[in-house]
Amino acid sequence: MAGMIDIKRRIKSVQSTRKITRAMQLVSGAKMRRAQNAALSSRTYSDLAWELIKNLSKTQELSPALLKVHPKAQKMAVLLISSNKGFVGSLNTNLLPKLKSLISETGLETEVIVYGQKGKEATVRNALSVTADFEKYERTIQPEDVYPISKLISDLYKTGKYKSVVIIYSHFVSTLQQIPTVKQLLPFEQDIITKAHKRKTEDDNEDGGIVGYGYNYLFEPNPKLVFNHLLPRIIESQIYQTMLEANASEHSARMIMMKNATDAASDIISDLTLTYNQLRQSKITTELTEITAGKIALE
């Protein structure tokens, strides 16, 4: 019967699809574990570094270029961290609405710095202006990879034309949950983004941010040297951390997507096999009846 051959073909094709998705699931599973470990183990460092700068920016009377605020500036720079490849579910598509609502909320002229192929395609499609396009490599991120990005961002901010610099990325919560997040990188204080966008952290208080102690810090050897050293390092560590988070999110999302695909393929295969067997059975029954009927007719 023609129907049976079709079903057999379909089973074969779904089986080979399942082979591919299972292989991809295993690969991203391995990558996921590595990326998750990297993201989680450096979280303490970047959180503490962030607290430090929050404390310092409240207390400092002497202000280096990076601690200045530009309330009159009309521009905003956005670093959009996305993945290079698809198969990650809604991970990348969730980032864009965040960007759009941020633009409409602040009303600032927005320039996007893209990191990752998918984010680049989306910004181009939405006719947003792209300032810089950094290529994302499919290997472990090294701290050195961040230097050019952090330098560009610092230089942009130092021109005084930018009111703020924010990062949009997927924050890694667990293998099953990744949250698209807006993080304000510069200026360190005076939040421009509203509370609704922010990731809720444990140490958040009513203002939605970490409050400095209001103490005057002693600097060793002197404020200028400390800041020269500290500020670039803090910006680097924050960007580095968001990249690790985004990476962990990407691989987790892909692992889950591939697992779903594999499971779905298995479901389809068992459905098709059942139909196939039913057809086969009824075919045999029909043949038997025909033979018996023929025999009776001959007698």
Binding site: Y213, Y215, Y217, L218, F219, E220, P221, V226, H229
Partner: peptide
């Protein structure tokens, strides 16, 4: 070790940031 030499911090130290 800081850039000005070795410093020792005891309980009750005032807030400080150093390289």
């Amino acid at each position: 070790p800081t850039s000005l030499g070795q410093i020792t911090i005891l309980p009750g130290h005032i807030p400080l940031v150093g390289n």
